[in-house]
Design a binder for these strands. Structure first.
Length: 407
RNA sequence: GGGGGGAUUCCCGAGUGGCCAAAGGGGGCAGACUGUAAAUCUGUUGUCUAUGACUUCGAUGGUCCGAAUCCAUCUCCCCCCA
């Protein structure tokens, strides 16, 4: 199967500028392409992960990826799809985020021996002279045309600052620079990036007369169209400090039925033939596919060892057997006890299962808390130190487990 | 530069002197039903040493027995005209 077919079959391609030419390019040539990452946080999240997967597919097929870190563009902020302006980040924050991204990325893309490049657009954008930039780049953009773009629609009602309006020009200029400096001929991005990509392609054509290409991949959404990768606690991060592997695993284990197959295709490298087998599953059988999805994605992001641990813990809690050691846990200190006892409320707050004592009370009152499978009936329930000598597993709701031990 | 409107709890959005910890919706959490799914129904959703106390309605100061609501100053946002 050719790369192009594979990407298509996996549902990764959303739009492209010229299907025939791109197909030919991907299947018969070795090209240099790029994708951008805006360093808006100190860790990559699942949206970036999809981006990395696409890059990896391309790299495996012999193409050369350039990952561009938006150290320069983040100074301005992409208004695409936003109803309000982003908070301006300080230069220090941006630099820090760029560093974090850089470390995480090398796990997915092989940057050795020039097989892939990582550049920071701060290197050229920050030194641009305003007047020169306007004369070289600004001249090629029509405001009339930009205003008709879908990506600015939502902002036409709420207001759009001139600062943000420039974002498209900056990203377009990136493409031009990469084209000139590295022979980059294609930009890849999430489907929301379509307008910015087109901007770059047109700029390259106007300045050099050369044709370059653009392709977007499908965004991760739930069946009702919401962006995936968000929970009440915020985004699902790739940084194990911010989203522990067990939690990461659980996120994928709990996706809705209608998304499993789609996600297996998009986010894992399992052969399509194998995924076809899961496609036949129905009803509760789909849980098997969900487990495979969770395992594979966790393995890619956190490594095989962590994936195994998460799987073990999952089996221990939801099935039978397995090792409970690897579920989230809290170690209690002797100071946490009062007269050798500790209340359930304290346990809930200590382990951050409840954000406040009031919330902890509510959980207990509503019957949402149990310890070693015995429901806690009273908000005054206490436990002695001895109780922690054996396994002590607290359950919140139906599927949040937490283990306690004593130092 | 001129004129007008606005800032409310996680979000949207009511409330224009006591009945306001603040309607309604969304989201979250919990319960029922289930398959660790979806949909649905129910409860809940500021904090605490908890039938009470404390903090909250852009910021500061004031009026009043009493302020999210009235007054003054300030900060920020939006719209219209130029």
């Amino acid at each position: 199967m050719t790369l192009f077919e594979e990407l298509k079959e996996r549902g990764l391609i959303a739009q492209m500028t010229d299907e025939e030419q791109i197909k030919n390019l991907l299947n018969n040539e070795k090209i240099t392409f790029y994708t951008g990452y805006d360093p808006t946080a100190d860790s990559l999240h699942v949206g970036h992960f999809l981006q990395l997967v696409v890059m990896a597919h391309m790299q495996r097929a012999g193409h050369r990826p350039i990952a561009i870190l938006g150290g320069g563009t983040a100074m301005v902020g992409d208004p695409t799809g936003r109803t309000d302006m982003r908070k301006m980040m300080t230069k220090e924050t941006i630099a820090h985020n760029v560093d974090c991204f850089r470390k995480q990325m090398s796990r997915f893309i092989d940057f050795s021996d020039g097989k892939a490049l990582m550049v920071n657009n701060a290197d050229w954008l920050l030194n641009e002279n305003y007047i020169d930039f306007l004369r070289n780049v600004g001249i090629h953009f029509s405001v009339n045309r930009m205003l008709t773009f879908e990506c600015f629609k939502s902002r036409m009602e709420r207001g759009l600052s001139f600062l943000e309006f420039n974002y498209m020009l900056m990203q377009s200029y990136d493409f031009y620079r990469l084209h000139e400096d590295y022979g980059c001929v294609m930009e890849l991005g999430g489907d929301d990036q379509w307008a910015n990509i087109i901007g770059g392609i047109e700029l390259v054509r106007k300045k050099t007369g050369k044709d370059v290409f653009g392709m977007t991949f499908t965004l991760l959404t739930t069946s009702d169209g919401k962006k995936m990768g968000k929970t009440r606690g915020g985004a699902i991060w790739l940084d194990p400090e911010k989203t522990p592997p067990y939690e990461f695993f659980q996120y994928w284990r709990n996706v809705e039925d209608s998304s499993v197959i789609k996600l297996l295709k998009m986010l894992t490298f399992l052969p399509l033939d194998e995924i076809k087998k899961y496609e036949k599953l129905e009803g509760s059988e789909l849980n098997k596919a969900k487990e495979v999805l969770a395992y594979e994605v966790t393995k890619l992001v956190h490594g095989e060892e962590e994936a195994n641990k998460a799987l073990e813990a999952t089996h221990a809690l939801f099935g039978s057997g397995g090792d409970i050691k690897d579920m989230p846990f809290t170690e209690l200190a002797h100071e946490d006890f009062n007269d050798d006892v500790i209340t359930v409320i304290d346990l809930l707050v200590k382990s951050k299962l409840a954000p406040s004592r009031g919330e902890a009370r509510r959980l207990i009152t509503q019957g949402g808390i149990s310890v070693n499978n015995e429901k806690i009936e009273s908000i005054g329930s206490e436990f002695k130190k001895e109780d922690f000598e054996q396994d002590f597993i607290l359950k919140k709701g139906k599927k949040v487990y937490h283990r306690f031990s004593i130092k």
